[in-house]
Amino acid sequence: MTFWTDVFWPAIKILIILNAVLILVALLVWAERRISAFIQDRLGPNRVGPAGLLQSFADLLKFIFKEDVTPGHVNKPYFVLAPALAVMPAMIALAVVPFASTLIIADVDIGILFVFAISSLGVYGITIGGWASNNKYSLLGGIRSSAQMISYEICLGLAVIGVFMLSRTLRLQTVVEMQGDGIWLFGNHYGGFAKILDWNVFKQPLGFLIFMIAGFAETNRLPFDLPEAEQELVAGYHTEYSSMKFALFFLGEYAAMFVMSAVAVTLFLGGWTLFGLEELGWFVQLLIFLGKVLALLFFFIWVRWTLPRFRYDQLMRLGWQVFLPLGLLNIVLTGVLKLIFKV
C-alpha cells in the first residue's frame, strides 16, 4: 500500500469521473428538454449559451437561490435525509464502472453485485422522501416506487446472469475485455469490424431486451414513471420538496439513468471497445464509452417522449408474469447453448 497507488490516483480519478458525470447530467437535462421539444416540433431552451447549452447551469443557480420550504407537517430528519439518499447510490455505483481500461475507480471482483447492491438503495431515498412528506400523493408515489423497483430489480438481476455465464466472472473490466477480442465462428477468427458481433447484445439479445426494459422501470422513466405520474400524484414523492432538495432528487434521477446506461454499455455493448480503436489510449476509450452511453441516453429520452405510461396493474403483470419467466428462460437457454457450443 503506497500513497500514490492507493490514495493519490484514486482521488484524481474520482475527481475526474465525478465532475464529468455531474456535467454530463446537467447537459442531459438540457438534452432531454431539447429532444422533447424537437419531437414536439418546438425548439426548446436555446437562449442561455450556445444552443442553450448552459440552461441547466442557469436552472441550478435558480434552484440555489430559491427559498427552501420545509412544510410544518413533515418528519424533518427524514425529509432532509431523503434527497441525499436519492443521489448517493447513483454516485457510488459509478465507482466500479470501467470508463476505460485504466480509468476505473475501484476494480473490484464483484463488480456487478456492487452496482446492484448500491443502486437498489436508491429506492430508500424515494420511499423515505414520500413517507416523510406526510402527504398522500407523496406517500403513494413512494409506495409505488418501492413496489416497482423491487419487482424490476429481480428481472434486472436475471437478465445479466446470462452475460456472466458467458464471461465466467463478475469483474466488469473482464466482461468488457471479453467483448472486444473478435469472434470465433466455425473455427475461424474474425477481427476488425466483425468484432462488434462479439458484443453481448448479439449473444444475449433477450437478456439485453429485458435489461433495458427493467432499466427503464428501475430509473422510474416513462413508460414506467408511476412514482411521479403527474396526472394522478401531482409530482409523486417530491411533491413537498423545493429548491435544492428538489434539485437533488432531479439529479439523482438523471444520475441513476446515467449509471443504468453505463452498466448496459459495459455489459452488453462492448464497454470502451469499438473496432480496435481502443488501442489508441485511455482518452479514446473514454470517448468511445461516453459516446455509447450518450447514444443509449438518447434512446432513454426518445422512448420517454414516445410511449404513454403503463397502468399500475399492467406494470406489475409485465414484471412478474412476463419478464420474470423470460429471464429464467434466458438463463436456461444460455446454459443449453453453452453446452452445445462448448464456449
Binding site: 429532444i35 424537437f38 419531437i39 414536439q40 416540433d41 426518445w302 422512448v303 417522449w305 414516445t306 410511449l307
Partner: peptide, 10 residues
Amino acid sequence: KGLGLTLKYF
C-alpha cells in the same frame, strides 16, 4: 412504429 414516428418529427 411509435419510435419511428417521433424520430421523424425529431
